[in-house]
Design a protein around this nucleic acid. Structure first.
Lengths: 152, 152
DNA sequence: TTAGATGCAAATCTTTTGCAGTGCG
DNA sequence: CGCACTGCAAAAGATTTGCATCTAA
């Protein structure tokens, strides 16, 4: 789904994007951004922390929270809304949808043809719609298979 | 949007629904369900608690959490996913969408013509889609108006 | 009568904040 | 060098849990 070229582009343009928004390019920010740019796993702040910590052992969870929040406000990341109580981040900013497995909770990206046009934006009185996001809930194959082999 | 007849039906069938799923019909459960069946405001556990407390002063917040979770697992309520960290509940189980104001956070129900058919369920490899939910983000009229009168 | 439900208090989990010290530009 | 950033520790906010008591059936 994610091409190496796309990932490389995002990572290379990061310092410039920081400068143009007045953010300093710190080791912590680079590490966090690069990790998110290269993954499709929609990690939570804690997962980001545990991953980054391997290479940057002095990083703190508070910094991870602050950086993720800044990136989100700058439009570098999107926050994926879920029913659960932990935030999940996604560095793919292009319009796309999400598949959520009700059993294991994994979140997968979903591309739908005529790019970006699904669903159409409806006209609603008394509300100015700016964007939409659609979640498809169901069962991923892994969970469906393990269910089949573990009869109730 | 919500007709009195619909509300009345939901409230009247509640004891029977409880019995058929093995739940006891307690004052607390009745009060919580009736409140949610009659509102369109998608309240959080704390809002449910503060509202119910007026008539049932001895109820505890922990009970509200437990009851909401049971109702959700029984399919009496849906939990509305939001970016924030508090849960929001909705007793309307029919397929519909939500408008979320990025300024005040209000969640409005949205009905889209050919009932229930928007968006169409796509076919995806390795995933069995069971339902979809779409969130439309933007500005409600109230917030748009107050923005206009408070220039940056 | 009794299994299940409630209320309370304490625990847990997630996120935010204040502040002193650090490092990018 | 200066201001923004980080790390730590403590606080705040949301939710869950354990357990003694109560109550619907």
């Amino acid at each position: 789904m994610l091409s190496n070229v796309e990932i490389k582009e995002r990572i290379e343009s990061f310092p410039e994007r920081c400068r143009s928004t007045g953010l300093k390019v710190t080791h912590q920010r680079v590490a966090i951004f690069n990790y998110l740019a290269g993954t499709e796993s929609h990690p939570s702040p804690d997962e980001v922390y545990e991953t980054i910590r391997v290479r940057l052992p002095s990083i703190s969870l508070a910094t991870v929270y602050k950086v993720l929040d800044q990136f989100h406000r700058q439009g570098f990341l999107r926050r994926v809304s879920t029913e659960g109580q932990v935030a999940r981040y996604d560095a793919r900013m292009e319009h796309h949808h999400h598949l959520i497995c009700k059993s294991c909770g994994i979140i997968r990206d979903l591309e739908l043809d005529p790019a970006g046009s699904h669903p159409a934006m409806p006209e609603v009185a008394d509300f100015r719609i700016e964007r939409s996001e659609t979640f498809f809930h169901g069962l991923c194959n892994t969970c469906e298979d393990s269910k089949a082999s573990l009869p109730a």
